[in-house]
Simulated scan of single mutants.
Amino acid sequence: MSGERLRIVRGREWARPVRPARREVLSALPDPEQGRPPLLFVPGFGHGAWAFAEHWLEHTASRGFPAYALSLRGHGGSEPAPEASLRAYAHDVVQVAAELPRQAVLVGHGAGALVVAHALARYPARAGVLVAPVFGGWGTLGAALRRNPVGTLPAFWGGRLRLNQRQLFSPELPGTVARAHLARLGRAGRRAQWRLLFPGALEPAVGRPPVLVLGSPDDRVVPAAALTRTARRYGSAPLLFPGMGHDLMLDARWQEPVDAILDWLVKEPAPAVVPV
């Protein structure tokens, strides 16, 4: 049995399996089918699959890629789960990815990028994409406290993390649209939020798939230094979109980053498939 396989099959998963949960998955499929790898979009904490259904799903399908968006348990239209853990979120991603017709590209946004990073250690993805990744730690949380103390402090005691309009969107997005998006935000599980304080070490990705990191130097959630640090972890530099907010998939110039992701996938060679 290979070392890659040993990292997928873990004693803890067998001894203490994650409780099943009903998961919302939205999709948009190309017509005709072109045999390209499916993309599974994973939203950040407080967001649901709706955040990608707004623009990115249909646009991805229009370029020939099957597109799916998952609401993590406790988010969007998925089953309520106030005590969900980061491990449970990663389990959701792996389970949905394993049900797709072909080896998937995992795309995580915000704290959903941290979930995807954990899922990559359990699922042999075609590639990984980390959009404005929130990997936690005191640097990122310190920046959030400085910019939005009222919305950030409650999360330290298990309360809801509330991001504001200036943190998520650029001034280019009309205020009425931004407020409508804000009204749809929910909350993550307390245990998962606390993991942002102490994120711990990440295991290597199964099969060492290519990983793209992208974000904005004007993001008011993820400091530029944190974006660069995450990209270096995967041996690259971040792809930057100046003038955009944290929620790149909902901001005024939403098409630029998703086109960059799809262009990269067209050029990037596929890794070897690891049997599971």
Rank of each mutant, 00 (worst) to 15 (best):
L161I: 15
R5Q: 13
P149C: 08
R232D: 04
G158Q: 06
L202A: 07
R208H: 07
G207V: 04
L196W: 10
S62N: 14
L141R: 06
V177H: 06
A121K: 01
L168C: 14
T228P: 02
G137Q: 08
L185R: 13
D218S: 07
A21R: 04
P82G: 09
A225S: 04
G136H: 06
D92C: 11
R36W: 02
L227W: 05
A143P: 05
F198Y: 09
N148P: 12
T228S: 11
E172T: 08
P238R: 01
A119D: 10
Q103L: 13
L153T: 12
A272Y: 01
Y89C: 15
D259H: 07
T152E: 15
V177E: 10
A97D: 02
L173I: 10
A97P: 08
P17G: 11
G207S: 07
A231Y: 02
G48V: 02
L26A: 05
A119E: 04
E4R: 09
L141A: 11
R146L: 12
L6D: 07
G139S: 04
P204Q: 01
Y89S: 15
R10M: 11
R195A: 10
V273D: 10
A237V: 03
L72N: 08
V107A: 09
A188R: 09
N164Q: 11
A132F: 07
W194I: 07
L114V: 09
S2P: 08
L214C: 00
L40M: 07
V274W: 02
P37K: 01
R122H: 05
P43H: 07
R229S: 06
A28M: 11
R5W: 14
R147N: 13
K267M: 03
L168F: 14
R232H: 02
L100A: 12
A178K: 04
L39M: 03
Q167H: 10
P217F: 10
A183E: 14
A49N: 06
G35M: 12
V258P: 03
Y234T: 01
G76W: 01
P32F: 02
G159L: 13
E4D: 13
R191W: 12
G215K: 03
A53S: 14
G108C: 14
V211N: 02
A98D: 04
T230I: 02
T230W: 00
D259L: 06
V213W: 01
M1C: 05
R233Q: 06
W50Q: 04
A201C: 07
A98G: 13
A180S: 15
T60H: 01
G159D: 13
W194L: 12
V116R: 09
L106Q: 09
G11M: 14
L29G: 10
T152S: 15
R7S: 02
